[in-house]
Nucleic acid binder design. Sequence first.
DNA 1: CCCCCCTTACTCGACTTCGAGTATTTCGAG
DNA 2: CTCGAAATACTCGAAGTCGAGTAAGGGGGG
Lengths: 198, 198
Amino acid sequence: MGARHRSNPLALAVLALLYEQPMHPYEMATTMRDRRKEDSIKLNYGSLYSVVQSLEKRALIQARETGRDGRRPERTVYEITAGGGVELLDWLSELVSVPAKDFTDFEAALSLLGCLRPEEAVHLLEERAVRLEQELAQAEALRRHESMAKLDRLFYIEWEYRLALRRTELIFVKDLIRDIGDGSIAGLEHWRAFHADH
Amino acid sequence: MGARHRSNPLALAVLALLYEQPMHPYEMATTMRDRRKEDSIKLNYGSLYSVVQSLEKRALIQARETGRDGRRPERTVYEITAGGGVELLDWLSELVSVPAKDFTDFEAALSLLGCLRPEEAVHLLEERAVRLEQELAQAEALRRHESMAKLDRLFYIEWEYRLALRRTELIFVKDLIRDIGDGSIAGLEHWRAFHADH
DNA sequence: CCCCCCTTACTCGACTTCGAGTATTTCGAG
DNA sequence: CTCGAAATACTCGAAGTCGAGTAAGGGGGG
């Protein structure tokens, strides 16, 4: 399969949209926005057009018609090919069944926490905790909102997943604040020593 | 500050290493490997050299000496500048204090789960659950290993963070399997209907 | 003492990503 | 009916990403 090319999830999203029905690129963008997919899949105008182009070159999608509506700029409508359908299901199956390592910003920051003084670190972690609590409170409010309450759960599983992770993150951050604050974290002396020199 | 340029965490890692002591690029790579930083920060040979170049252009680091050891290829040793130190602390502070949205592969996959048939989805999620359990078991084993037991906790917080997230993910996946399996997930009819047409 | 392979250190160019910029068209207020 | 604002549909080039490729030194087996 085209496993070499499976880096950009936007390509997956394009295949998924065309799996439902043919579309032109701009419509893909608006559809993704309407369905809140931009929250879970990074969407960029510039990327979209080159991703579509690259999918066409690999024969996973093909141009269907290059019609024009009135005197508007030309729209190229694309449809998925048989190969594209196979690639979609194969790729999606892989993403679901094998847990990939993903590099998050906070993980990177934690691994370099030693560059900050302990007190500074605690202070910044407290800020993060506050912001996480706000985010979670907002999410709770949104969930109770009527427009959300009527939506099938299938359409917001990814949202629940993200919330579950955020809740865990909040607990982790609070524990960490406690352990640095009361000096119970192992290695605190080395940490202080490094900053004493600097 | 240079907030426009804060996309690649590898640049942050380079600043952090040079904050400790001057180094040449290849040494950065090996040091990161020795300290297991490659687990939490994506390291690529090609990227490293262009990242270093870009940091130099922005005067956050500077070449110190271009010595050579015997007749080996030239090594350029870099050191951090005053501006580089400021940028490091500022950037790191931001990453710690404000929770950023990160786009993970699994979240993208979940948002497109409708493309798979329900039974297929359950099957693949079960595979993921098994793999997650294996990963967690391996991590537990590693933690009990002597080389790990002696290490200061400060040096593997990022590892604990990742494990906490993975544990939450496992619970989430198991719950999801249950809810799709026993038909209690809202919207299952629409899901089946879509695949009946196809 | 010579050959092969591993490590060291870096280069290269094909490919992607990004977001600001452009040009047209519709819509609504006045 | 006309002017401007928003929406539509796309383009462009600068910058970044990637990993295979290269080339030279060191070291150990025959």
